[in-house]
Each structure stands twice: as structure tokens, then as C-alpha cells.
Design a protein around this nucleic acid. Sequence first.
RNA 1: GCGAGAGUGGCGGAAUUGGCAGACGCGCUAGACUUAGGAUCUAGUUCCUAUCCGGAGUGUGGGUUCAAGUCCCACCUCUCGCACCA
Length: 809
Amino acid sequence: MGYPFKEIEKRWQGYWEEKRIFNVDVASVPKDKKYYSLVMFPYPSAELHVGHARNYVIGDAVSRYKRMRGYSVLSPMGWDAFGLPAENAAIKRGIHPRDWTLKNIERIKEQLKSWGIGYDWEREITTCLPDYYKWTQWLFLQFYKRGLAYKKKAAVNWCPSCNTVLANEQVIEGKCERCSTLVEQRELEQWFFKITDYAERLLKDIDRLTEWPERVKTMQRNWIGKSEGVEIEFPLGSSDIKIRCFTTRIDTIFGVTYVVIAPDYQHIDKILELSPRAQEIRAFSNEVLRQRHIDRGSIAEKKGIDTGLYVINPVNGQRVPLWIGNYVVTEYGTGAVMAVPAHDQRDWEFAKRHNLKIIEVIYNSQANLNDCAWEDRGTMVNSGKFNGLDSEDAKEKIAAWIEENGWGRRKVNYRLRDWLISRQRYWGAPIPIIYCDKCGVVPVPEEDLPVILPDVKEFRPTGESPLTYVEDFLYTSCPSCGAKSRRETDTMDTFVDSSWYFLRYISPRDEDKAFDSALVNKWLPVDQYIGGVEHAILHLMYSRFFTKVLYDMGLLSFDEPFARLFTQGMIVKDGAKMSKSKGNVVSPDSLIDRYGADTMRLYILFIGPPDKDAEWNDRAVEGIWRFLNRVWNLMDIYDTMPEEGQGDANRAVLKKVHSTIKKVTRDMDIDFHFNTAVSSIMELVNTLYEYRAKGVAKNVFGAALKNMILLLYPFVPHISEEMWRRLGEEEALDSHPWPDYDEAYLKEDVVEYVIQVNGKVRGHIRAAVDAGKEELEKAAKQEVKRYIDGKSVNRIIIVPKKLVNIVVK
RNA sequence: GCGAGAGUGGCGGAAUUGGCAGACGCGCUAGACUUAGGAUCUAGUUCCUAUCCGGAGUGUGGGUUCAAGUCCCACCUCUCGCACCA
């Protein structure tokens, strides 16, 4: 029962497609009329559930709203189609990942269409197809030319289950972000992008992203992890080995009582040659590394072992012992720490445990070094010529002094590592590089792109790229000398594909270049980007990096890709993220079958603040279904309205209409408060029901109804279009202007005042808007007579049009 | 530990930014219409005081103010991100 949504939704979806409502001619749109509305493109793994739908429904509401606001809205859609899940699913089913992927794409496309989400499907892109990855490869070559793509042997993160390496960003708490397997370290020769060259700009430009959520910006800042300090060298005894330490607390340099290095310190073997206890130390180090692997992030005790060697503190010539400690990690700084137990809690704990000296060099009366380290500022002591200075001032002076003497230098350290992009898997874009015995590493000439991913039957992960076994692919001739040579067999991380797709949408079929700079410069930055917060670091930082590189190449006139970012919250069910394995997935298709797409869309928008996680409630969906039926039935009510009405009722209805327009417009413009926008439209509908028998004229009721439809259109376009036409309108809603509100209707002659006594509400009065002070005071006193009789009135506070507060004693 | 965000009825959540706390929706209660109701409509629904009259109330404890969910101080709890970051 209920309104005939099935027929209605089918009709308008067909109409939009036929009229090409969502297709944009990017070349002809003037710059001040363009609006690029982008949702993060999906990975076509399986059917979409309502959690995914939230992303697209929000995006569609924004696009349709902006269209009504007079913009030419570009809203494209594509597929992030390379990657491990496709490969794993294909292996499981014994089919090719491409077939599996393309089948899913068709299925998901149907889903999106059935939800009434409008996209310019003529701009559809699929990253696993050669006409797209040709340009991913081209971009790799540009990076290579600029020295931003390089190969090096390094300890890398290895997922033994996925049988491939992972970027640092893909390791979560020591585990693979995909399969949660503990990640191992392996020494491998791999391709990297030099994102660290851009660390400072990626950090600094975050400040310009004023329309990004604070949370995302903070996460990126933390990830980049800048810290400023000094790198100082401690010579090892009489050898020529120097232990370089990074510190942000150079003011404590005179308090160094030992130096401690990581168990897997890079020059550990050379150092151990000098140590009398090498055997013992190796055993200790192995144990620490093993422990760390099993129990990452929760090491309780500071354990260490003395190497028996000494290093020299260059600033005072003191010999201090060299230790190996479990609390030092190779990945940060230099893997060696100058330890100052008096002023660093970790060093303090270590020193206490191993009976190492604690020398105070920053004096503060609040410090008690018997209990813990003093990490705040203070006055310099035991620090030679720097004694008496404030420790903050001393930092600068000591750094300069160390540089003068050549003991070290100021250094900025970043936590950010270079981006490891090689993957030993099949389903990705081949890295366009050839290895020739004579010429060395030779990039594939641009005219030979794309390097086609060969069709293979066997692509199980073995730890080596499956392409290694494809002879036709592997062997080629050197572009430089023509000799027989081998191709690179690793493929690229899929995050490379998604780091530039927003540029490709502007000219998706261009066979001559990756993107059209002139058009891209007109259409980007993206006006509104919408997606899940899970991409806060990976995708969003890589895309920013790409944009900056392309800007430096002169191909773009902007260096931040996304002007405004909105991260929608997750939809959870029974307290958990929706997933097949948990069996708590809500399928939009069954909802649509029962209530229609508009009900699903509106419920998703109404469920809560869109940037927060929300709990799915099947019952609450019915509330929306009831609401839309009430909306639908307003048409019948309209037919029975009298031509003539009464002034009061007409005014009340019009006032509600205009205040609703004002409220909804605000919610749309300011921060996507769809939930409150919807609830205020519900109030309007309630008002229309309330006044239907109170003498509202038919034309007033009709005007109210039409404005209501305009407000609803971005949320529930099908029912809106249908009602619009049934009410006799000819012109389509998608190009109809958004309604304006008229302050004149919001003005009131008489307002209600709250009367308080000592801040407590004791009554209400109605008074003319222009009522004078005395008049209001008199009426207010009269209203709350019984509360103030026999008491003296101290003060009367009047807030115009709101309240009167009488202060009595 | 650092950083970000959040704590409001039985539930999801509102509150024009210092001015009637609980909009809107779910659920619940009662009634109407019905052979019937998991349809629809009407009324009610923060708690205590059985009603009235009142009183209390936005995580806790203080404070500022005529007036505090909102501002200030201290604390507690939860979620997320990073984490022996030197």
C-alpha cells in the first residue's frame, strides 16, 4: 500500500537519462558557473549496502541542490578497479579478476541508477582498463624523469598472507590493513615515490585547507610528524664510527649519560665487531625484535644491554657508555638516541633500571628527579658556558654553537616515509620499466604505452609477481640499444590509480594526454569532495602529493585538489560496521522494493548528523515511509481546499513556509545538516495538515505545497518531480531555481514573551513587536503577580521579542 | 602519553550560538474509524510529587551571569587517529 513509488521512480529515472540532465559539456560552461561535485569512487567488490549508499545519497543531494542554485554541476562516477580483493575473489571463483570486476561494475551501476543518483555516465572511468592505466603509467614516467620515482633496496613491510609488500600507510598497528596478518620486515629492492620531498609543503598547505574537517587535517599533520631539532655525532671510542643522534632537546646535551641504539641499528654489525660481548648482544637483540613483532606497541619494561663500548660527547669530551635498548626504533630519527635520564622519562626509567648516571642540567624548583624526569623548561645548570640561561633560549644558542664546531647540524625530521608503490601481485598497472644488461634501468618510451597487463590464467600470489612467469611479457627488447632485456614485473599500488582520477573525469576519452590542462584548470579544484574518513591519510595525502607534483611540472595551476572536503560517518548496525561476515548488512535493494528509493534516500539523510556514525534502525525507516505518504496525500487535500480562506490561517501557513525555506537553505549551505533540514520540512508538512481545515485558501495551500516540493527535491527527486507535474507544472524541477524566502512573511506584529522571575519561567504574554519598555514591564508584572507580590523588584531585564526577567528579593 | 571529537528522555537526535531544554522521528499509552489492524486519524509521552500546586533536570564538582546544555576552572567516561617519535 501507499503511494505508487515503483512506477514513479522508473518514470523519472528514464526521463533524467533521456533528457541528459546530468551530462555536462565541460568546455562551454563558464568558470563562475561550474561546480565539481565528487564522491570517492567505489571499489567494485560486491554489491553496495546502505553504508555505501550514504556517500552517494549525500553527493546527489548536494549536486541537485547546486543545480537548482544555477550551477552546471559536474558529478562523475568511476571505478577504482585494480587491487587485491578482485584478485582474491577471482582466485576463489576460478575466474579472471577482470571478468569479476566488470561484472560487479555493471551490477553496482544498476544499483546506483535505481537509487536515482544522477551521474554523467559518459565520463565513467575504470582504472583497470588500458585507456586509463596507460596514463597512470605515463605519470609514473614523469615522476621517474623528475627523480621522484626511484628504486632502492630497503627493509620493507611484507604481508605473508597477501604475499606482497605494503606501504607504511597500509600497516595498521603492525598488521596488514587488508587481512590483519602481522607484517614482517624484508630486505627487498622496490620502487618508491619520493613523497618526503614534499613533506614540508604537504604539511604547510594543510593550513590553507580551511574547508576540510579538523580531524582529517590533524591526522595528516600527525602522519607527516614534523619535529625540529639537532643531529649530533658521538664518535665511538678510537674507531672512525660515529653514532648520529637526533634530538629535539639539544638544551639537555650536557646531561647525556649514555647513548642507546636500536637492536636493528643500521651499522650494528660494524659496532659489534668491536664489542667483547657480541654474542650475548646478538641474542638480546634477536629476542627484542621477536618480542616487538609479537607484541607491538605494548612493551612494558625498558630493557637493554651494555655494549661495553664508549662514545664521546663532543660538547664536553665525556666518555659515555653505548647501550642497546628495546625502546629505540630504527624507523624514526637515526635509530640512535642521546639519553638524558634527568629530562626524559623513558631515559629516566632505563637509567634507574640499569644503574646509569642521572645528571641534572635543567633546574626547576618543582622537579624531583628521584621520582621522575623533569621534561619542562627551567634554568640551565651543569652546562658549561650556558649555565644560567633559560632552557628554551639555550636551545638556539647551543644549536648554533654545535654547528660552529662541526659536531652536528640543525635538522628537521619527518615521520613520513617515502611511498612504496611496488606490489608483487597481478591485478595492477605494470610499472613501465625495462632492465637492460647494457643500459641498466630504461623507462618505457611514452609512445610504447600502455604496457598491457597480459592475460594470464595463473596469478596466485607466490611472493613474486605472477608476471615473472609470463615470458611474452617478461622478455622484450631494450628501447635504447635493442638488446634482449627484461621488463619490471611488479605492478603499482592501487592508490597510485586513485591519486589522479579526479583529473581524468574532465576529459575521460582523451587518447593523447592524461588530462586537458586548460579544462582541468577551469574545473578544479574539486568544489566538494565527499567520502569516508578512512581515506583521511592514504588517498587524500597521495592525491595532494600528485597534485603538487603536477603543479610543479606546470601542468596544473592549482596545488591542492579538493577545496572542500566532507567526510561522512559510517552506518552501523547492532553496534558494528556492516559486513557480510557479521551478517548485519542492510541491502538497499530490498528496502527499495518495499518502500522505494526516495524512502531509502530520505532515511539515510535523516538518520543523524551526516559527519557522525549512525545506527541503522529498520523501524525508523517506516517513519520516513509514512512521512512520504503524508506528503503524497497532500495533493488530495489540496483538491478539496476552499478557494477563499481566512487571513490568519493564510498568514500562519505562509510564515511556516518561508521560515522553512530559510532554515533548509541554511542547513544546505552551511554544513550539510540534512537531518535538521528534513525535520523542518516535516514540521511544515505537520503545519499543512494542522491548517487544512482551518480556513486556508486553495492558492495559499498550493503555493505552500509547491515550495515544499522544491525543498524536498534534492533529497527525494522522484516523488518531487511526480507531484510537481501532477500539480500542473510543465518545467522540470532539476533546472528550477531554489526558492527564496521573503522576510516580510517572517515578520510578526505580535510576539510571545517569556516572563521569568529570577530566571525561572513563570508565565507568557503576547505583546506588540513595538511595545515599549513600560508597557512590557507592566504586562509582565501583571502576568506573574503572585510570584512577586510582597517582594521588592530589583531589576527588570528585557530581551526584545524574547523575554522579560524580573529580579526580586 | 599526545592529538581530535563526543557525553542531553526508553532510543536516534534538536536547541536561531548566553534567553521557554527535549524540535523532528522511532518506540510507548489512550481514544476514534474498522469484521480486523503491524493501515489511517486524534490526544498524550523527561523525571519526582498518584492529581493540582510545586520541585528536580543536559557526565561529575565548582565558578561567572538577571539568565548556562551553551562561557570559565578542575575532574570522570566513551569513540577515533598516532604512539617508547628521542
